[in-house]
Nucleic acid binder design. Structure first.
Lengths: 187, 187
DNA sequence: TGATAAACGGGACAGCGTTCCGTATAGTCG
DNA sequence: CGACTATACGGAACGCTGTCCCGTTTATCA
């Protein structure tokens, strides 16, 4: 069992990192995170040997949030509606967390674990939404959740030019594509 | 008129940077680029006041290459074929130049000029291909080249998991989507 | 309460982007 | 052809980064 202060500091670091990332991006210096958490840099590095480990841990938390929302929406809304709502939130999620997409696509092996975690958790949650909607007949049933989630993520990458309008339009188009073959089971 | 040695060094720097970027990614140290070019770091910084300026200059060159290929293909192939071929090469281009997509989407104002250059040059070249193909009746005529080029780029971002298979499949799907409404002019 | 393993803070180190400044040289003019 | 000068040069210096080290503090438990 870890010492109580160690656990306190770990929580403080995760929270401080989340705030600093939101305020100044993932490139914020580690010292700033440690300072906000009220600990020394060595304490940070004891819990997260690499800077990327801390980033991964924070994003893992946020992936958990998104996953949880999927199952929540599935319980409270009609299948088709739940899928639509979740896609919208996911778009917002990716567009907001500026570093996430970049980290997942960086190819840096430091984030391969994060990618696997993402695929292992978010994909099944989406699969559940897709299955329910397909059974209700509102969408086609031949889409791979991993490819769909990846496509949504790519389309949601923040375009420096404008707001999230473009992403919303593209994702809407994608969802219409899902509805296109509903019940028809056409290739 | 600039001094002859200055121009020589500028060319050497661009070539060295291109090679270093290809070999070690865009995060390669400035000193390594200067060393390969056989100049001091100050010389590099005199020509490119910011590191990002050098990156932008190299990518500008490569954007020129892609743009030139579009007009070249338009002369040598049927409209539909030229579009297909160019899309394939563009996919390869984005997938290979690991830093390009990240730079264009980073939101870093240092690259906003690069983005504008890209849009000002590549988009018209693609527009030309699209117009020709639309006139030949092989594709629909209601697509914005900027959105299409952006979508292709996003779908072509290298997926850390596998090769370019996924990107090829997604882009192929997109092109099929273009062909879908050909001559029908259906919304 | 005192022993001790666990955890701590902050300074040290190497490497990065960027700047400074004394030196060398390409281009020009007598 | 040779000297003069603006231009360009190299490399050391600076500040900041991620990461590591080590002497000190503290939570835990007999």
């Amino acid at each position: 069992m870890p010492r109580a202060d160690a656990r306190r500091n770990l929580d403080a670091l995760l929270e401080a990192a989340k705030q600093e990332f939101a305020a100044h991006g993932v490139d914020v210096p580690v010292r700033a995170i440690a300072a906000r958490a009220g600990v020394g840099t060595a304490t940070l590095y004891r819990h997260f040997p690499l800077r990327s480990d801390l980033i991964a841990a924070v994003f893992r938390r946020e992936i958990d949030d998104v996953t949880a929302q999927a199952t929540l929406l599935a319980q409270e809304y009609d299948p088709g509606e739940a899928l639509e709502l979740w896609a919208r939130r996911y778009t917002q999620f990716v567009a907001t967390k500026h570093g996430l997409g970049a980290a997942l696509h960086s190819g840096d092996p430091a984030y391969s674990g994060l990618r696997e975690y993402f695929e292992a958790n978010a994909a099944p949650a989406l699969q559940h939404l897709l299955d329910a909607a397909a059974e209700a007949g509102t969408i086609r049933d031949d889409v791979d959740p991993l490819e769909l989630i990846s496509a949504i993520a790519n389309l949601s990458l923040p375009a420096p030019g404008g707001g999230t309008d473009r992403a919303d339009r593209m994702v809407g188009l994608l969802l219409d594509g899902l509805r296109y073959g509903a019940r028809a089971n056409a290739r």
